[in-house]
Simulated assay, not measured.
Amino acid sequence: MRRPLVVALCALALAGAGVTPAAAAAPTPAAASAPTPTGADAAADTAPGAGPGAGPTTVLDVADIAVGTAAAAVAGLTGPKAAAVDFAGTVSLSNCSGSVVRLPHSQDDDPALVLTNGHCLESGFPAAGEVLVDRASSRSFGLLGSSGSRVATLRANRLVYATMTDTDAAVYRLGTTYARIRSAYGIDALTLDDTRPAAGTAISVVSGYWKRIYGCSVDGFAHRLKEGAWTWKDSVRYTPACDTIGGTSGSPVVDDATGKVVAVNNTGNEDGERCTVNNPCEVDADGTVTVRRGINYAQQTHPFTDCFGADGVLDLDASACTLPKP
């Protein structure tokens, strides 16, 4: 799993040392007549500082601005990002990244969903074998526009599903719909692909926390990926160019050709250790263990498309659903 706070402090130190952040285009303001989505904080409809007299109103707002500035500084020191993929529809969490996602069969008036990692839960890591379903939540998410500017704060009303067993994912339901988000902010949700990605697929890992996009390819798949007490199945392994860091956990992994989400970024082997926390190892079907220091991984998301009904409601008993059950 990735550790965002240590990296955040390093980035803040860089910013304080005089690194000039890359300039970001201001988001296009929503029309005055646009409705404010239910579940979105009206005070956060535009990025902090976007309007006359605008400014942070809470400690969290101040922290978000500081992290965003530091993230821009770090991004300015890195290589170019993928040209065809941007930040629209991604979100920043207090400790991770994520995205507003829809299923291939979602309707515009369905409650919108946010996807991140199971290990990004505000309550801490789910235990091995633990599955959380339909829990109350009021978690907030910073919605990003195409340039990476924060355009709104969205708020959850339920934690729909979360686990770190077989996969590492959490899905929240927002108190607003896809249509309302589009109407107010001109932003569409990212669509989950319903097919398994192929080795060699060009991908982008889009971090809303760091406002950074990593471009690489699917190198292959780990039959089992073991990290500490947790084991994940059929994990996506990146080529080395996706050198993701703490805070990128939960980032959508986007197929560059289709623009669809094929996986959710979750971990990497940092120190070359074998199967320990922050040092996952690959386990083949025959039990052979392989350690790849510096290589990072994601969990496939196509299984989720078989576990939600036409109304966007989770159905773990659906015939094709393979997600772990409580």
Results as ranks from 00 to 15, higher is better:
Ala112Asp: 01
Ala112Ser: 10
Leu113Val: 01
Leu113Trp: 00
Leu113Met: 15
Leu113Asn: 00
Leu113Lys: 12
Val114Phe: 00
Leu115Val: 09
Leu115Tyr: 04
Thr116Cys: 08
Thr116Gly: 05
Asn117Glu: 01
Asn117Gln: 09
Gly118His: 05
Gly118Asn: 02
Gly118Tyr: 04
Gly118Asp: 06
His119Ala: 12
His119Val: 10
His119Cys: 11
Cys120His: 03
Cys120Ser: 12
Leu121Gly: 04
Leu121Pro: 02
Glu122Tyr: 10
Glu122Cys: 02
Glu122Asn: 04
Glu122Ser: 15
Glu122Arg: 11
Ser123Lys: 10
Gly124Gln: 07
Gly124Asp: 13
Pro126Asp: 11
Pro126Lys: 09
Pro126Gly: 09
Pro126Gln: 12
Ala127Arg: 13
Ala127Phe: 10
Ala127Thr: 11
Ala127Cys: 06
Ala128Leu: 08
Gly129Phe: 07
Gly129Trp: 08
Glu130Gln: 15
Glu130Leu: 07
Val131Ala: 05
Val131Leu: 08
Val131Ile: 07
Val131Gln: 02
Val131Asn: 03
Leu132Thr: 08
Leu132Tyr: 08
Val133Ile: 14
Val133Cys: 03
Val133Arg: 02
Val133Gln: 02
Val133Leu: 03
Asp134Ile: 03
Arg135Cys: 03
Arg135Tyr: 04
Arg135Trp: 05
Ala136Phe: 10
Ala136Thr: 14
Ser137Cys: 06
Ser137Leu: 07
Ser138His: 14
Ser138Phe: 04
Ser138Leu: 11
Arg139Thr: 14
Arg139Asn: 11
Arg139Pro: 01
Ser140Leu: 06
Ser140Glu: 15
Phe141Glu: 00
Phe141Arg: 00
Phe141Leu: 04
Gly142His: 12
Gly142Ile: 05
Gly142Thr: 14
Leu143Asp: 04
Leu143Pro: 02
Leu144Tyr: 09
Leu144Asn: 10
Gly145Phe: 03
Gly145Pro: 00
Gly145Ile: 06
